[in-house]
């Protein structure tokens, strides 16, 4: 996916911001915080995971998402957000 496509979604940026704050959350909680439904959250999370920005851990039916460790893309986005919001 091109960079403009990844950044074209406000929700995806919000997801990264939430995970920067909370470090780890399940899909339902992310959906609740964004005020969107489970499917939509799941779709955006999938995009971010495919791009190597997020990673997930599965415990039975529970999937916990976090920012991917040692991912250059994730670091770049975090830097961008931090610079922007500081």
């Amino acid at each position: 996916m091109n960079v403009e496509d990844v950044f074209s979604s406000r929700l995806r940026i919000k997801i990264v911001k939430i995970l920067m704050q909370m470090s780890e959350l399940n899909i339902s909680e992310i959906a609740r915080r964004l005020g969107i439904n489970h499917n939509a959250a799941s779709r955006h999370l999938q995009v971010l995971e495919d791009e190597g920005i997020l990673q997930q851990k599965v415990f039975g039916r529970i999937r916990l998402y976090r920012i991917k460790e040692n991912s250059l893309k994730a670091k770049a986005i975090q830097n961008l957000i931090e610079t922007w919001e500081s």
């Binding site: 780890e24 339902s28 909680e29 039975g60 529970i62 916990l64």
Partner: peptide, 14 residues
């Protein structure tokens, strides 16, 4: 270990 582990949606056995 996982501070934000969800509280709802599954049984004790799970």
């Amino acid at each position: 270990f996982y501070p934000n582990f969800p509280k709802r949606g599954y049984a004790a056995e799970e």
